[in-house]
């Protein structure tokens, strides 16, 4: 069949794809039937967006007094140091008038819509991926340049780094980051997660950068040097601009991997999307709905990133 025929009847093929997809979903449903699973999708939205209101915690140890409207709450410091604090618009007070509370105790709930645990987890996943991405890029570009450097020490150090990281599992590296580097370098769990993820991803980016640079023909460097440009100027104005086009597609793949790999930080007392999923499962007993939803949320992140990178790639490729 010629390609023009394929494109003219394109919708037939796409309809077939949809049919296959539907059959797949149907068989998933049937499979769940066989183990007597009750789907309760209605339980899920509250874990994305919570309408139960936002919990208000006590800012310090103190005595609570509730005003006549039953909504305004005043907390007076226990030892009489500092000013009393008034908190308005508490919909559901969870403490009684005159009760003594300690810092962090829940005083009540404020009405309104707030992010549920899954969205909060998604936000952490986004933040840790983004921060790690920045560090991984810096690390990866430096190590990649080291791999192609004329300086033997730079080459050795960069190779050592890349080989060690690529030769050990990410989960083990994260444990080392959390149990060794976090206490010795006084890192928070988040910082330790960023540390582990960016050191890991940096090693892969280094290889991508090395391959990109080596793909630029030697004649380019020679032409640049014969014009009197220094090594650094050659790198900056001749080699890197050409390497970047070759680096970008695999780099995008690596960023997507980073987002997915970040799910492993859920072992480090960090409530990312995956950890949030686990917590929601244990309170809803609806693992199927939760994990499908979590998967979809990861897909939205990675798919969005793919789109952005495709755009960028097209723009960079204009000149070839």
């Amino acid at each position: 069949m010629t390609s023009s025929q394929t494109s003219r009847r394109g919708w037939v093929w796409h309809a077939l794809s949809l049919l296959i997809l539907a059959a797949f979903c149907g068989s998933l449903y049937l499979a769940s039937k066989r183990i007597d699973y009750t789907w309760r999708w209605s339980r899920l939205p509250q874990y994305l967006l919570s309408t139960g209101g936002e919990e208000i915690d006590a800012p310090f140890d103190g005595t609570v007094s509730i005003a006549a409207d039953d909504k305004t709450l005043t907390i007076t410091p226990l030892l009489g140091v500092g000013a009393a604090q008034t908190i308005p618009d508490i919909a559901v007070p969870l403490v009684a008038d005159g009760e003594v509370v300690f810092r962090g105790n829940t005083l009540g709930k404020k009405p309104g819509i707030s992010a549920g645990p899954l969205l909060i987890g998604l936000w952490l996943t986004l933040r840790i991926s983004f921060v790690s991405l920045i560090f991984a890029l810096v690390l990866g570009v430096l190590a990649g340049l080291g791999r192609v450097s004329h300086n033997p020490t730079a080459r050795d150090v960069a190779s050592f780094y890349v080989e060690i990281i690529r030769g050990t599992p990410l989960l083990v590296q994260l444990f080392i980051a959390y149990f060794f580097f976090a206490p010795t370098l006084h890192l928070s769990a988040f910082a330790a997660g960023v540390f582990g993820l960016s050191v890991f991803t940096g090693a892969y980016i280094a290889e991508i950068v090395r391959a990109g640079i080596q793909a630029v023909p030697k004649g380019q460097t020679e032409a640049s040097q014969s014009l009197g440009l220094s090594g650094l100027q050659t790198l900056r104005h001749v080699v890197l601009p050409q390497a970047i086009q070759k680096i970008l597609p695999p780099l995008a793949g690596q960023f997507i991997n980073l987002i997915k790999d970040s799910s492993l930080v859920s072992v480090m007392a960090l409530t990312d999307l995956t950890k949030a999923g686990r917590e929601v499962v244990s309170s809803t007993f609806s693992p199927f709905e939760v994990w499908f939803t979590v998967a979809l949320m990861y897909l939205i992140l990675t798919g969005g990133l793919s789109l952005v990178v495709n755009r960028l790639e097209k723009r960079l490729a204009r000149h070839d």
């Binding site: 023909p217 004649g219 380019q220 020679e222 032409a223 640049s224 040097q225 014969s226 014009l227 009197g228 440009l229 220094s230 001749v238 601009p241 050409q242 086009q245 000149h319 070839d320």
Partner: peptide, 20 residues
Amino acid sequence: LRRLRTSVGMVFQQFNLFPH
């Protein structure tokens, strides 16, 4: 070497123009 190179121009078989 860089200073001297500026006084020596070179033309290559494969042109080696900067494609970007």
